[in-house]
């Protein structure tokens, strides 16, 4: 469900760009999706295929680049890698973590004509 809403937003960005740039066909798009964004890449791909079916981006290739999760651990006073929200600090096992990276959801590039 979440992915369906996001796929619609992605299509909107593609359509706005197409209107502005006079594009006729979108072949591929590159997204950057953070590991901590709660987005399931496969679900997003499935939803985008569905919402783009009758659009300028029908059948377009969706390349999803994952961005790693990062957090600041208060106990370690250090940035640590965080694979998922709710996980412990991989160094000290504590939970006083502040997410500092990996929540982004961006459209980076289009390949189009």
């Amino acid at each position: 469900m979440h992915e369906m809403a996001l796929a619609e937003e992605v299509l909107q960005i593609v359509q706005d760009t197409a209107r502005r740039e006079g594009l006729r066909r979108v072949h591929a798009l590159w997204l950057e999706i953070g590991q901590l964004s709660s987005v399931e890449p496969e679900a997003l791909r499935f939803c985008f295929d569905a919402v783009a079916r009758d659009s300028i981006a029908a059948g377009a290739r969706l390349e999803i680049v994952a961005a790693p999760g990062k957090a600041w651990c208060e106990a370690c006073a250090e940035h640590v890698a965080l694979a998922a929200l709710g996980e412990a600090c991989p160094r000290c096992g504590g939970y006083r973590l502040r997410v500092t990276g990996g929540t982004q959801m961006r459209v980076r590039e289009l390949e189009a004509e």
């Binding site: 996001l6 937003e9 992605v10 909107q12 960005i13 760009t17 197409a18 209107r19 502005r20 740039e21 006079g22 594009l23 006729r24 072949h27 997204l31 982004q104 959801m105 961006r106 459209v107 980076r108 590039e109 289009l110 390949e111 189009a112 004509e113």
Partner: peptide, 27 residues
């Protein structure tokens, strides 16, 4: 509304456009 312009002539080859926009930027 910005309306689509006529297709530019001789613009058949694919190109890469940098977008760099948050998916939820509009919201």
């Amino acid at each position: 509304h910005s309306h689509a312009h006529d297709d530019p002539v001789g613009h058949s080859s694919a190109r890469i456009l940098r977008i760099e926009q948050d998916i939820l930027a509009k919201n």
